[in-house]
Design a protein around this nucleic acid. Sequence first.
DNA 1: GTAGGGTTAG
Length: 636
Amino acid sequence: MFLMRDMLPRAAAFLILHKPRQLLRSLSTALPASLKVLCSEGRLGEAVVEMALLGTGMKFDGYDAILNVCVDRRALAEGQRVHSHMIKTCYAPPMYLRTRFIVHYVKCGRLVDARRMFDEMPLRNVVSWTAIISAYSQQGRASEALCLFLEMARSEIKPNEFTFATILTSCTGFSGFQLGRQVHCLLLKSGFGAHIFVGSSLLDMYAKAGKMHEARGIFECLPERDVVSCTAIISGYAQLGFDEEALELFRQLQREGMDSNYVTYASLLTAIAGLAALNHGRQVHSHILRRQVPSYVVLQNSLIDMYSKCGRLSYSRRVFDDMLERSVISWNAMLVGYGKHGMGREVVDLFSLMRKENKVKPDGVTLLAVLSGCSHGGLEERGLELFHEMVNGEGKVEPEIEHYGCVVDLLARSGQVEAAFQFIQNMPIEPTAAVWGSLLGACRVHSNVEMGDVVGRKLLEIEPENAGNYVILSNLYASAARWEDVRNLRELMKEKAVIKDPGRSWVDIDQMLHSFHASDRAHPRREEIFAKVRDLSTRLKEAGYIPDLSCVLYDVDDEQKEKILLGHSEKLALAFALIATSEGAPVRVIKNLRICVDCHTFAKLVSKVCWREISIRDKNRFHHMVGGRCSCGDYW
DNA sequence: GTAGGGTTAG
């Protein structure tokens, strides 16, 4: 009050001292800085003081002005004072202001307050309904958002384009997909189906449900395209692993003049990472730098991942180190990168740094990255220690089935196959096929046939359709010369009509991806490639290579088996890479599945006999082969 | 006033 007195004209000062009631009435005109001016200048604190002074003098305009500043600033405390001021002065806010309050509470993360405001509304319109639905949707509470939508439909308020865009986002993912289809039908009747926001959330919903054909159809029918709809369709392909399609569509849309922003590039980099197309990735990176696309955390995370999946961890680390701000995903991407390259020491060190910095809280993915990093990097004991620390210690992470799977891996890898078996039996969660699968892999490496027999049978019960399991079990039986079991296994596999996942390997040479499937004869240089494979086979045999026929589960003679083995896609890709690159140059091969034992042995020997550094990225990790040895230590 | 696409893991 005293401060204000100095600022006020003499007449107003007189009023403060002698006629306060009169003053209140005249304040809005008498004060040089009225409530509206304060609000337009963003002087929220002073505005709140003036609101208190105005008392019942506050009208719609005043509340509107002050609430707008609160919404912009996400000023929770001030908003609450406005709210209680209304209650105290018995002001009944109109629908518009109540809706603004909902938005304000949502922006401050106060879903409960928003909902209370909504529930207390005597009348609601489509905007208030959409605001509360979007509140639940943004918090990831899709089913509640959907319930509210149905309630809205019952109350005979017609959804508008905002409502449809919101609700379709909530239907994203498999669980809401059926309802999403119904919303789609409603949409067709409403006339909002061609709206660009509605259209892009609709196509995104179909894409995330794995229905790319429908998503593409919707995309093609959009009356106009913008950066969001283009990004949605590209990321749809990328997330489903249709990396080449994503890349091709990006090129096409770019030719047609599409706008790109950091989200577009992040999605594009996902596809490039999947293909391990390093040259494309570098090109995109320099394009981003040249165009001065803002380096948002999301985009930098994508770059870290892209370089790591392309085998360039030092580039990943450079991006990571240059970041001004890092999210948990940045740390996870870097940790996963080290892990996949078998660099256990670096995983442990980086994780220590993360804890020391203490800016970002580790999550379930961090735990996964650390455990699998220790496992791939041969730090079994450290991995088990960290598991116990993270699960029991401060800021603990709730372990899920994948984490238990990693522990099984750690135990089994360190040779404690029995302990791993015990661990599975005592887990608080039902083991999945993946958990048994990693134990079976361990039994193969440690040649523990008895245990492998038990585990393999369990696995074939749970997952009879997975051909990989039959192959590993066959490797195991063969190593113990249990040919009868190998034969039975082959019969069983025939009976269960297992269709093998189509294996595919490729190499990236001069920005061209050369892709091969088993016994592929499509490549223009096929004759040279097959000749090279045969030549390698001869040379490797002199160096001790014995084809592992137990990797073939077809009922054919041994000569035929050997031919099938030589046709494996990774051998074709490797042979092509050798003839397409100069003598002594390192070679990089990418495979969509796990590499088989025979191809692993073959490639290791190639690295020795041909004096080449070979890196093979399979589904799980990188295999760096030099002089006949592999960074995985023959455990994968 | 209320709305759409994104990064790690599986």
